Amino acid sequence: MKDKVAVVTGGSGVLCSVMAKHLSLQGFKIALIGRTLSKLENVANEIKETGGTVLAIAADVLDKDALLSAHQSIKSELGTCDVLINGAGGNHPDATTSMTEFDSTTNEGKGFFDLDHKAVGGVFDLNFLGTFLPSQIFGKDMIGKEGCSIINLSSMSAYSPMTKVMAYSAAKAAISNFTEWMAVHFASAGIRVNAIAPGFFLTDQNRALLTNSDGSLTDRGNTILSQTPMKRFGKPEELVGTLEWLIDDSSTFITGIVVPVDGGFNAFSGV
């Protein structure tokens, strides 16, 4: 892994920042991409403190021109991309219901018929196009090279959709399907494409949904842990073993898979 280049979108997020810092310790040169430069620079400074080589670039993964510019900067300063981690994604409140199931007896709360179609489209764009565009731009660097990988971020909701987050669940299911499609398409080019499906980790996006201000669990948080055999949330550091395995030369015959890192959530039937 020495001196290879890893590009990480959503690089300032809780999960992807840990991935980036881990890869730096393995010898990767790191390019962090995200919308807020100050947040990226905080992660970059941590990487520099451990002797790593890192470049932080503010770019929206839905802005092709910004990504093309970022690509040129990374190529010039670090070299061409060997590993792409498509970590950018998320949900939007306007694409989320407050009801877990349809109730014809009340007009309170937000149900399926109240969802804003533009917000739903925005969630699809962020998760799917926000993976497609970086793959299209940085994937070209991998043609003719050895040991290159694209790692996508799927979700538990891709296997079985979670209540309330219809758009996010459907978009992550698309990521799993897209991972398989790309794996087949690029197999002859030697580019391996796999995905990690994290279980439930506390992040900036879901913390308020899963925990109360005093740190206790919300009803949703309790439900999740009741369905997780290990009875706890994951720690970001528990993703890096799977990441390292998927991009290492020891897994050169593995492509097109989605690996759950979930404390047993996906394996549990609820009974």
Rank of each mutant, 00 (worst) to 15 (best):
M1D: 09
M1V: 03
M1Y: 11
K4L: 06
T9R: 04
G10E: 09
G13P: 14
G13F: 13
C16P: 09
K21A: 11
H22A: 12
S24Q: 13
G27V: 02
G27M: 02
G27A: 04
L37R: 12
E41R: 15
E46Y: 04
K48M: 05
K48N: 13
T50I: 15
L55K: 13
I57S: 07
K64F: 11
A66L: 07
L68H: 12
H71N: 14
A88D: 10
A88T: 03
N91L: 09
D94R: 08
T97Y: 13
T105G: 04
N107E: 14
D114A: 12
L115C: 07
D116G: 13
A119R: 04
V123W: 05
N127K: 00
F138I: 06
F138R: 07
D141W: 05
D141M: 03
D141N: 05
M142Q: 03
G144H: 06
K145L: 09
G147I: 06
G147F: 00
N152D: 00
S157R: 11
M166Y: 15
A167L: 01
S169L: 07
A170Q: 08
A173Y: 02
F178M: 10
E180I: 01
A187V: 14
A197V: 05
P198N: 14
P198C: 09
G199P: 01
G199M: 02
G199K: 02
N206D: 07
A208K: 15
L209F: 11
L210H: 06
N212K: 05
N212S: 00
D214C: 12
D219A: 15
S226D: 14
M230V: 08
K231S: 14
K235I: 13
E238N: 07
E244W: 01
I247N: 12
D248A: 13
F253W: 06
T255S: 03
T255A: 01
G256W: 00
I257Y: 01
V258F: 01
V259W: 00
V261C: 04
D262N: 00
G263K: 06
